[in-house]
Write a protein that binds this DNA or RNA. Structure first.
Lengths: 206, 206, 206, 206
DNA sequence: AATGAATGAGCCTTCATTCAT
DNA sequence: CATGAATGAAGGCTCATTCAT
């Protein structure tokens, strides 16, 4: 049945996430994944064409979710801070619900250029451009400072966001609860928008 | 002569940087490095005990420089913004002078936990703590906002900084000249301190 | 099936014996063993963890059999000459049934100290001590001469025995039949016990 | 000067003996020998054509000495026991004066067929034949028992002798003094000739 | 003569992938 | 569908030997 096939495939997928998170992609052997999934290693090839394709599927899962979000954001016509907040929430939410996937994004996808096929690199740039578009809009609306290129704002925003996750990844820290996640989410946005410097009259959050 | 040996070792080191930058550590074969350095395969082993040690030497080069800087900063009793600026300049300066090393830091050292020996992980945490100390000092001096943990400020700062480099790495972008480097450096600090939001009366830089 | 696995492993084991006998352990390449066994060389690693472990297994096979014999001897409460005869028979019997194993014992295990792990050296000394115990018993029973240390008798006995095998190994000589083996066995014992010198009245065999 | 060259060559030779004794021939690297000799490793090649030839020289040294002895024995028209005693003394004497050489004979030359070139094998057989000739003479003179082939006596004699040395090699035991060496020498001969069995009237040594 | 940098063939081992059952 | 035995390309490392200085 097709349904069963899907479930098995997903089980292998999740097993792969767990192992790759632990050992990194290059050090992960197909046999490890099979063992983690509790199946024989030959069976993986009934569900995925090969190791490379399996890894691509993982990346696709991440990007698929993220681009889905970006499209939703564009459709829903939100304000700039709300959009940024939505992006932050996507990252933190994924880390909350599927920490392995977020972990792998940070450690294997986000930076490493060696795993990056040209197509995959495209994803990155596309995503950056989407964020940059938001920044530009914020600048033209007079909400964001325009004394620096929108690229700068983009880097700062995504960098801060990623590093929050990275730090949690590095120490394998989990969110205690949703409230903590909310607090972090708000913190990232506020520091990004308001900056680190103290002011006489605290800047009102957006 | 010892001098010649040093130079040869450095030549191999730099060749390794170039190859690793291009292919990533795991996909880099010793033969590639030898070819890039224009020497025979076995000769690498006269200068480095093995692939792992060579990679460790690369990481050490990065951390050595960075910790050297951090010590200097602590000694020289600079103000908070000046310290942060020095850190930014170190990252950008390394990228300017030795782009491969900075690249490798971003793609292979900075995130990947799989390459991380416990000792190496130590470096990370130590560095984060050094930055966090600066943030704490800024908070206690009343210069930095204290409505968020100093950790948050640390993540935002380092994240933004790293991502500036990352983005340049991704597109293999070089600084046109020192002036451009200066501009970026100032931008990072200012956005971090002042935030992305526009204000009626632009915040004075520190 | 487990049975098949055992058989395959044994086939590789025997192939290894044949090759090592021919080329010596150090000059034996895994590829040689694979070729001799008629399999691809990667397959060896499904059955043995590595070259070293394969060699250890070979040594273990020898010592396992020998110590098994020694235990049986001690249990069965045989007389001194019968015990010595049993040891001789074990050596000759192994050479008869598995000439490669006996050969390797002689050429690679028996003497070479460089292949000898401390554990392996233990085996040697243990075995020597077992024989020496027999000699001591013979001396205290008044059956063996006691004007020399029991060690001397031990060396002479084991030396003669080993060299019989060695000589056969060197010229790749096989026993024609069991009768010949019996004759040799008796000869070794008799010369050891009675000595090489002729006497007026031939010494009665034990 | 030729004299100096000879001395240097001998120094390398002795260094090789020491290292090979410790690590075995196969695990001995040319660099080890050079280090032990206190010279650069390239220099060895000024004195020996290569590793193999160096090892052959070592074997030649042993066999040269031994065959020299055998010739002398034949010339001097000694009795059978005296000849056997001379052979024993040669082995023990070499072990006494140049333990490394005797050690290497036992561990690397005596048994290992893998190090044995056909020419080297020849030496063995020649030597065995020389001893066997002695045994045959003893038999035809009525001094040695003739109810077994002379080969058997040969194996027993050489086996016992070798194993005495082997045992000393294994535990790295040295002779305390010449007297001890004499005692061992006599013991070997007496046990070989008189056998291990006790008799009413102890057999007179020859 | 002496040095040690340089070379590269050789070999062990790993592991993605295939395939017979 | 499921298994795991089998394959063999790939790559790290060693070390005997050569050779420029």
């Amino acid at each position: 049945m097709d349904r069963e096939r899907q479930e098995k495939q997903e089980a292998i997928f999740q097993a792969a996430l767990r192992v790759i998170k632990e050992k990194g992609f290059h050090k992960t052997r197909m046999a490890d994944i099979a063992k983690e999934a509790g199946i024989s290693y030959g069976l993986i090839y009934h569900y995925f064409p090969g190791k490379g394709k399996l890894f691509e599927a993982i990346q696709e899962r991440w990007w698929g979710g993220l681009f889905g979000l970006m499209k939703r954001i564009e459709r829903e016509n939100l304000g700039v801070p709300e959009r940024l907040r939505a992006v932050i929430d996507y990252f933190l939410g994924t880390y909350y619900e599927n920490p392995e996937l977020a972990n792998i994004f940070i450690t294997e996808i986000s930076r490493s250029t060696s795993n990056l096929s040209p197509e995959r690199l495209r994803h990155f740039k596309d995503f950056m451009e989407m964020i940059q578009k938001v920044m530009k809009e914020g600048q033209s609306l007079g909400f964001l400072r325009d004394d620096f290129p929108s690229r700068y704002l983009t880097y700062m925003f995504l960098g801060g966001l990623e590093t929050f996750i990275s730090a949690m990844v590095l120490v394998d820290q989990k969110f205690k609860d949703l409230a903590q996640k909310e607090k972090v989410s708000r913190g990232i946005l506020e520091i990004f928008l308001g900056g680190a410097m103290k002011r006489e009259f605290p800047v009102e959050g957006p």
